[in-house]
Write a protein that binds this DNA or RNA. Structure first.
Length: 867
RNA sequence: GGACAAUUAGCUCAGUUGGUAGAGCAUCCGCUUGACGUGCGGAGGGUCAGCGGUUCAAGUCCGUUAUUGUCCACCA
């Protein structure tokens, strides 16, 4: 029996039960069908994460795709999981530790701290998963993975050791970006550059022989403590005589040479550059070329070390102040000028990073990048929209070696050991018990952990069982499409591509569907500090999940551009859900004895029209989904359901349901169109469509859940183009009369007899009920208009309404004359176009044909309008 | 410095191979029409940033200018 549906849709009352029903039914698990596997891996949210709008958007798109493919017979797997998010998680747990116990991670020690993080993860790590479920995400939750699971950790080991053995991972001392707040190295992709209002300090370095000064310009004066030289351009005449001599480094009283190097830009600053090998990447290179000594003056925590002389123990900020003050005192600070420049900041904590020399592990990129470039250039991996390919290629073609070691504790420990006995350094898949070289058991493991993205890069195959050759891996890998925002192309997407190729021999997905970022209603970036963030869960409470999802889906655009989210615009989509709800109530309360949602044997003209429209919709929605044009798909669905189905089909059905001879067929057509529409809408609005579907009587449900109902296919036999065109004539007449009546302020309750002059008399006569139902016709007769009637010229007919008492005859004449003039003008333009051989010969036939028809229609209209 | 994108109705934005410019919101006018006022019917409002080009035909393709935004590189 059909469930009783309330007058308005109340999403809060049904969503949880629907989700539970899906879960209990086991519908999220992939089912073998007549089509192959279709796989999407979720971009794993951080375990520390709270659901934000970006997740909601990304997941709405993925869920729509996976639900569509599942209904379409594919063995659809949406692989879920979470990321351990090394630094981010460690920061969160450290903060909590400091707050609740006033302790640092060092107070606890490494093992105890890691235990704490695991406890935290067990307690809070599933919060984001529960939130994803609220969105209706149809992930196969039984497969939930975590990047630090045993299996995934094994994948990390395998990949590390395999790269190490191939010589593609090495340890090296070089300038790396260090976050002194997180106290770890970062990869270049984790550094954000931002323009800061800095200062350029001009500092005098006296020549050792006391004959003068050289003035250098610097933005980081504290680094002068580590200076190894002053460099000038070899062709710079100003300093030609000074090359090879020495200056006395102020404050440190060290003699350093003046060298010549082409790196120096003569035009910039003073033309003299201080060379600080350990604290600037360019200086490092210069130092290598000139064999300069390397002097590190700062620790990873940003505190000046013993090499900094009397400044040792000061933080970098304190050191800068002290150095400047001392220079000032010595009269060596010549000038300070404002100098806006780009400064690298830590992507996690937004503190300025400190470039400094340190020992780190690197992945050698050149060899790995080559096939990843080819994969995209040769089309095995495609980006949608295509323009993102350029970004990807530009990055990977210029990629530098990847710094993968992090000086934190939460993450995959680098599987490299050093033998204290023989000094052997080796990487192993299993923790070793003794040195493979000298069998000593005195082994020390590298203290660092791997970059979080090292494990994320393996996600498409590590989640499916790699490194084991599992059935899942064979069936679901390579995956199909990766859906994510463009801001992690380098951090994640590119690394998955080269990792997938290197370790599995296959590109991890054939399509990368990229989208933009959500901004607030004014186009501003959403952020906690600005307080303009929108909580999707609040949106769900207020408007329902489906309304939020439809709105988000409609925001996607074909350029992958950023989108502005205005919370109150959810209302429109909430209204749409309610509209669908009520349309369904109407259809369900008028089912009668309809035994199924098959079409009636004979179709009326309006039936043929809506069925034809529906075929077009099936075709369009499917095509848009296949092309990742989800915004267009949802727009067409809304237009069809609201405008075509509700405003025309349902309105007309009210008349047809009153007559015994048309009642049953009408019931059937309503059920048929509604049921098909629900299936098409389901990927976008899973809850409401399922709730309505479950309210259908048993005979009308082909499947226990709409989730696993079959995706509709367009049927050519149900395209009635001619009849649909006839219907449009009737609709034009309805609209034309409505407009005129409205202009003349005739209340809808006032009916009027129509006198129609038309070549389509049979059509208009047999469908007089349409005009009576929708356009206030009391009677429809045929013939010439009576004197003083209001004449309405529409496509195919002139309709006369006897509303003489409401009409100013002169105004009426003027209006008709104006319409005639405008029609005539349009006719002239069109006829000139059709007389142009350039057009008739070169334009496609269908266009010419359509224009000829338009011309004929205009001609007829002009005749009708002519007095 | 380089690259990419955007510029369409008062506002926010769609616009899928070039083929008569669309939506929502806002505004205005009507409506106790038996699914829905979270609704129904109707109206006004646009030289699609400027200029030039290709084409029978340009919001759509090409060039150029302007403005805005993003990314990359990098200036001690």
């Amino acid at each position: 029996m059909p469930k009783e549906l309330g007058k308005t849709y109340q999403p809060q009352e049904v969503e949880a039960a629907i989700y539970a029903m899906w879960t209990e039914g086991g519908y999220f698990a992939p089912k073998k069908g007549d089509k192959p596997a279709y796989t999407i891996v979720i971009p794993p949210p951080n375990v520390t994460g709270q659901l934000h709008l970006g997740h909601a958007f990304d997941n709405a798109l993925q869920d729509a795709l996976i639900r569509y493919k599942r209904m379409d017979g594919y063995e659809a797997l949406w692989m879920p999981g979470t990321d351990h998010a090394g630094i981010a998680t460690q920061i969160v747990v450290e903060a909590e530790l400091r707050k609740t116990e006033g302790k640092s991670r060092f107070d606890l020690g490494r093992e105890a701290f890691i235990k704490r993080v695991w406890e935290w993860k067990e307690k809070y790590g599933n919060r984001i998963v529960e939130q994803l479920k609220k969105l209706g995400s149809s992930c196969d939750w039984n497969r939930l993975r975590f990047t630090m699971d045993e299996g995934l950790s094994r994948a990390v080991r395998e990949v590390f050791v395999s790269l190490y053995d191939k010589g593609l991972i090495y340890r090296g001392n070089r300038i790396t970006n260090i976050c002194v707040s997180c106290q770890t190295a970062l990869s270049e992709a984790e550094v954000d550059y931002e323009e800061q209002e800095g200062k350029l300090y001009h500092v005098s370095y006296p020549l050792s022989d006391g004959t003068g000064f050289l003035t250098v310009a610097t933005t980081r004066p504290e680094t002068m403590l580590g200076d190894a030289a002053v460099a000038v351009h070899p062709n710079d005449r100003r300093f030609a005589g000074l090359i090879g001599r020495t200056v006395l480094l102020p404050l440190m009283n060290r003699e350093i040479p003046v060298i010549a190097d082409e790196y120096v830009d003569k035009e910039f600053g003073t033309g003299c550059v201080k060379i600080t090998p350990c604290h600037d990447p360019n200086d490092y290179d210069v130092a290598k070329r000139h064999n300069l000594p390397e002097l590190l003056i700062m620790n990873q925590n940003g505190v000046i070390n013993a090499n900094g002389g009397k400044y040792a123990g000061l933080t970098r900020e304190q050191a800068r102040k002290a150095v400047l003050a001392d220079l000032e005192k010595d009269g060596l600070l010549i000038k300070t000028e404002p100098h806006p420049h780009n400064v690298g900041t830590c992507a996690r904590c937004h503190q300025n990073v400190e470039p400094m020399a340190s020992e780190q592990w690197f992945v050698s990129m050149k060899e790995l990048a080559a096939p990843a470039i080819a994969a995209v250039k040769e089309g095995r991996t495609k980006f949608v929209p295509e323009r993102f390919e350029k970004l990807y290629l530009h990055w990977i073609e210029n990629v530098r070696d990847w710094c993968v070691s992090r000086q934190i504790w939460w993450g995959h420990r680098i599987p490299v050991w050093t033998c204290s006995a023989c000094g052997n350094v080796f990487a192993m898949r299993e923790d070793p018990e003794s040195c493979p070289h000298c069998y000593s058991i005195d082994l020390v493991q590298d203290p660092d952990v791997l970059d979080t993205w090292f494990s994320s890069a393996l996600w498409p195959f590590s989640t499916l069982g790699f490194p084991d050759d599992t059935e899942d891996l064979r069936r679901f890998y390579p995956t199909d499409v990766l859906v994510t925002a463009y801001d992690i192309i380098y951090l994640w997407v590119a690394r998955m591509i080269f990792s997938g190729i290197e370790h599995t021999g296959k590109e991890p997905f054939h399509t990368v569907y990229m989208h933009g970022l959500l901004r607030d209603a004014n186009g501003k970036k959403m952020s906690k500090s600005a307080g303009n963030g929108v909580d999707p869960l609040e949106m769900i409470d207020q408007y329902g999940t489906d309304a939020l999802r439809i709105y988000l889906t409609s925001l996607a655009n074909l350029q992958g551009g950023d989108m502005n989210f205005a919370p109150d615009r959810c209302e429109h989509f909430r209204n749409f859900c309610n509209k669908l709800w009520n349309a369904s109530r109407f259809v369900l309360s008028n089912l009668g004895d309809t035994g199924g949602w098959t079409l009636p044997e004979s179709l009326s003209l309006p039936d043929m029209w809506i069925v034809t429209k529906l075929q077009g919709l099936v075709y369009d929605v499917t095509a848009h989904l296949d092309k990742y044009e989800l915004n267009l798909a949802i727009q067409k669905l809304i237009d069809f359901i609201w405008d075509d189905f509700c405003d025309w089909t349902i309105e007309l059905s009210k008349n047809q349901l009153r007559h015994d001879d048309t009642k049953e067929a009408t019931q059937q057509i309503l059920a048929y169109v509604l049921e098909t529409s629900l299936r098409l809408l389901h990927p976008f609005a899973p809850f409401i469509t399922e709730e309505i579907y479950q309210s259908f009587p048993d005979g009308l449900r082909g499947s226990p859940s709409l989730m696993i109902a079959q995706w509709p296919e367009p049927e050519d036999r149900l395209r009635f183009n001619h009849e649909a065109g006839q219907m449009e004539l009737l609709m034009d007449a309805v609209r034309a009369v409505r407009t005129r009546r409205s202009e003349m302020k005739v209340p809808p309750s006032k009916k009027a007899a129509w006198t129609v002059e038309t070549q389509h008399q049979e059509l208009f006569e047999s469908h007089a009920w349409v005009f009576k139902s929708l356009a206030g016709a009391s009677d429809v007769t045929f013939g010439a208009a009576a004197e003083g009637a209001v004449q309405i010229v529409t496509s195919g007919a002139t309709i006369a309404l006897p509303l003489a008492e409401l009409v100013d005859l002169e105004a009426e004449k003027a209006r008709l004359a104006k319409e005639l003039a405008s029609a005539q003008k349009e006719y002239d333009v069109l006829s000139a176009k059709l007389q142009n051989p350039g057009f008739t010969e070169k334009a496609p036939e269908r266009i010419v044909l359509a224009e000829r028809e338009r011309l004929a229609a205009l001609k007829e209209r002009i005749e009708r309008l002519s007095p």
